[in-house]
Amino acid sequence: MEKRRQGAGLGLEEKTTFWRDPAFNDLELLQATYVTHSFAPHTHEGYAIGVIESGAERFKYRGSSHIAPQGWVVAVNPGEVHTGEAAIERGWSYRMFYPDVSLVQRAASPDEAPTLDVPFFPSPVIHDPMLAGMLAQLHLALASSPSTLERESRLTWTFAHLVMRHADTRLIERPTRGGRSIVQHVRTYLEEHATENVSLDQLASLVQLSPFHLLRVFRETVGLPPHSYLTQLRVMRAKRLIASSMPLAEVAGAVGFSDQSHLTRHFKALVGVTPGQYARACQR
């Protein structure tokens, strides 16, 4: 579903088209031009893979700042905190895929059953003109081709080349692993009380740490402060409820946001499209 907005003061038009493909585990796809929009720090349950069609994007990822210019590929691993904003005044346009882990796993072992290993991309920006072209053609095919065979063939072939050429096949370590039982306890509590107005003092008392110490450990382990993690939990739940056809007017309260405008602001900051656009894409 498509939405347009003028880039403030630049005379440039922002445009987003978002949809899901039920044939590939509800693969989420986005074609967008952003000028003034910036993504808040967030993660994805699956991968974020795409190609920059024009302009350049800047994003923070794994402790460093990266720039993806026109013709380059972006590959963000599951569970990794990252941002996104324009690297140049006229912004950037890109085509993005958000596949779940199993979809990419199958590409990592196309001749046999998928292993338990998860492909890991060591670099989030990749210069590979041939692959960039393949990703763009795949995105176009998923948007417009009526041929199931073409869509399936392009997806398998493209993701297999992406993995074979640029991934290490190893188990991705989730942020909560490595003996961080305190942080896991806090995350579980937030997941169970996501609709409540949880305080930092509550969380600190829960694990018997000072608020400052909890903030430091949580940020070091997860990459986000607890309040940002809670916001992301709510947005992820909102996506599931919207996909299940719950009316938008009811979603905000159901996931813990104070009102629909609050939901819309955070949803757009993390997903890149509005709840309404996401709802229309889920109805296709």
Results as ranks from 00 to 15, higher is better:
Gly63Gln: 11
Ala136Gln: 08
Asp21Phe: 01
Lys3Asn: 08
Thr188Leu: 05
Gly178Val: 09
Ile172Tyr: 03
Ser199Val: 13
Glu45His: 13
Gly179Gln: 14
Ala269Pro: 01
Gly179Pro: 11
Arg170Val: 15
Val207Cys: 09
Gln137Val: 13
Tyr47Ala: 07
Phe257Met: 06
Val163Trp: 01
His161Ala: 14
Pro146Phe: 07
Gly178Lys: 07
Ile182His: 02
Trp92Phe: 15
Thr274Cys: 01
Val251Glu: 02
Leu140His: 13
Ala243Thr: 11
Ala204Cys: 11
Ala254Phe: 05
Trp157His: 14
Ala113Cys: 12
Ile242Asn: 06
Ser123Thr: 04
Pro110His: 00
Asp26Ile: 03
Arg20Asn: 05
Ala238Thr: 12
Leu27Trp: 06
Met236Thr: 05
Val35Asn: 04
Thr158Arg: 01
Asp201Pro: 03
Lys268Cys: 02
Val235Lys: 01
Pro275Ser: 10
Glu80Tyr: 09
Thr156Ala: 15
Ala75Arg: 02
Arg219Tyr: 11
Arg90Trp: 02
His262Trp: 07
Leu171Lys: 15
Ile52Met: 13
Trp157Ser: 11
Gln70Pro: 00
Ser244Phe: 04
Gly84Arg: 12
Phe159Tyr: 10
Tyr189Asn: 03
Thr83Ile: 11
Leu142Asn: 03
Gln283Pro: 00
Val198Glu: 02
Ala141Ser: 15
Ala136Gly: 14
Val125Tyr: 01
Ser64Val: 08
Leu116Ala: 14
Phe59Met: 09
Val73Lys: 01
Ser123Tyr: 01
Val81Met: 06
Ala40Ile: 11
Gly7Ala: 03
Ser210Tyr: 09
Pro226Met: 06
Pro22Ile: 01
Asp259Asn: 15
Asp100Tyr: 13
Leu162Met: 07
Thr221Lys: 09
Leu116Thr: 14
His193Arg: 14
Pro110Cys: 05
Tyr278Pro: 06
Gln6Gly: 08
Thr158Met: 04
His44Val: 09
Pro124Gln: 02
Asn77Lys: 00
Ser261Glu: 10
His266Val: 03
Tyr278Trp: 07
Asp111Gln: 10
Pro175Ser: 11
Pro78Asn: 10
Ser65Gln: 13
Arg180Ile: 04
Gln6Trp: 02
Ala56Tyr: 01
Leu10Trp: 05
Ser261Asp: 12
Asp100Ser: 13
Ala279Tyr: 01
Ala160Asn: 06
Tyr94His: 12
Gln283Ser: 15
Ala86Arg: 07
Glu220Met: 11
Leu241Phe: 04
Ser64Cys: 04
Ala160Pro: 00
